[in-house]
């Protein structure tokens, strides 16, 4: 019997998926407004909404549209990608610890992006940044699935993730080590910590199409993941085309996570935490987990990005640092609560 005994299993009554999504969307909306509200300049609430549509005075319009909107949108996009891919990967691999970060997909995407920056492709062709990140994320995901086919055990996959992350970190360090320009090194280092600060609509436009397609592909995995909870043989006997599901899941994860990492660096553990928090609310049904996890992921990253702006600690805390600070203890807690089934 392999299943994650969720700490809250049986204690929390499932709620309707539609009410859950509406609730999460309201939360996300409130956080979006709050995100636009925070910054060096105080802007009146009513002015804020007018400025978002370009109807306020030119300087307020610029602050809201050029500085705060891209940051807010990127946080939402990146969070949605991570939440949805975490939910799909956990369902696909029957693995409660699966998420882009723990499986090394985020690390691989970062390596791809660093390669694009290091060799100067990103400077000449901005599109190469997400393309390199997505390709590398895709290679990592394919490798994981190849191993999962023969041995999908939780420990094996997580260890493989550690391996992929290790290789990515080693090669990223190599690039930084060999870099002739110290400014480039510090830029790569800061970028790797994960942030949506000082981004423009150029980054939003670069990532949005890929993230959108990725999210659609991830959502399309939903019905198949339910059948897959019976194991692959039973799922196939119920008419599931496993190959098609894998393509959707790998493709969706690579596009969404790769494009997100390309513009925000690595923001960890959102894909791990969100599905776990949502799962008992949807009766553990994998198909009902993806959309709420995506919306919740967007809200979580946005909230984290608001918090980093509120904590005044000299230089602004990087977003990825904060999510790791929260996410790592969560990961350890999950490992401990699942340890009996990990053997």
């Amino acid at each position: 019997m392999t299943h994650p005994s969720h700490p809250a299993a049986g204690l929390i009554r499932p709620v309707r998926q539609s009410s859950l999504c509406v609730g999460l969307l309201l939360l996300l909306g409130a956080l979006m407004l709050a995100s636009l509200n925070f910054g060096y300049v105080d802007i009146d609430q009513s002015d804020l909404i007018r400025a978002a549509f370009g109807l306020s005075d030119p300087s307020t319009n610029m602050i809201v549209q050029q500085l705060r909107m891209p940051r807010m949108l990127l946080a939402v996009m990146v969070g949605m990608s991570l939440g949805a891919s975490g939910a799909v990967l956990q369902g696909l691999l029957h693995n409660p610890l699966a998420e882009p970060g723990t499986l090394g997909i985020t690390g691989a995407a970062s390596l791809g992006a660093v390669i694009a920056i290091y060799f100067g492709f990103a400077a000449t062709t901005p599109l190469s940044l997400p393309l390199f990140a997505m390709t590398s994320a895709g290679i990592a995901t394919l490798l994981l699935l190849f191993v999962a086919r023969d041995n999908g055990r939780t420990l094996t996959l997580i260890l493989l993730g550690v391996g992929i992350s290790g290789v990515s970190v080693a090669l990223t360090s190599l690039a930084m080590n060999l870099s002739p320009n110290p400014w480039a090194v510090s830029e790569i280092a800061m970028w790797l910590l994960g942030s949506v600060r000082d981004r423009t609509f150029q980054e939003v436009n670069l990532a949005a199409p890929f993230i959108l397609i990725g999210l659609i592909m991830l959502m399309a995995c939903a019905p198949s993941l339910d059948i897959l909870s019976l194991g692959e043989d039973s799922a196939r006997s119920l008419g599931l085309r496993v190959g098609r599901l894998r393509i959707l899941a790998i493709g969706g994860t690579s596009l969404a996570v790769g494009a997100g990492v390309a513009v925000s660096g690595s923001v960890g553990f959102v894909g791990l935490m969100m599905p776990h928090l949502i799962r008992p609310l949807v009766g553990h049904i994998p198909s009902r987990l993806i959309l709420p996890s995506a919306i919740g992921g967007g809200a979580l990253v946005l909230a984290a990005d608001i918090v980093v702006r509120l904590i005044a600690v000299g230089p602004e805390l990087q977003l990825g640092v904060l999510t790791s600070l929260i996410g790592t203890p969560f990961f350890i807690y999950l490992v401990i609560s699942l340890r009996k089934r990990m053997a």
């Binding site: 392999t2 969720h6 909870s229 019976l230 194991g231 039973s234 994998p286």
Partner: peptide
Amino acid sequence: AQGDIVHWPL
């Protein structure tokens, strides 16, 4: 199928 695999507490 053989065995009683159910991967999630459904």
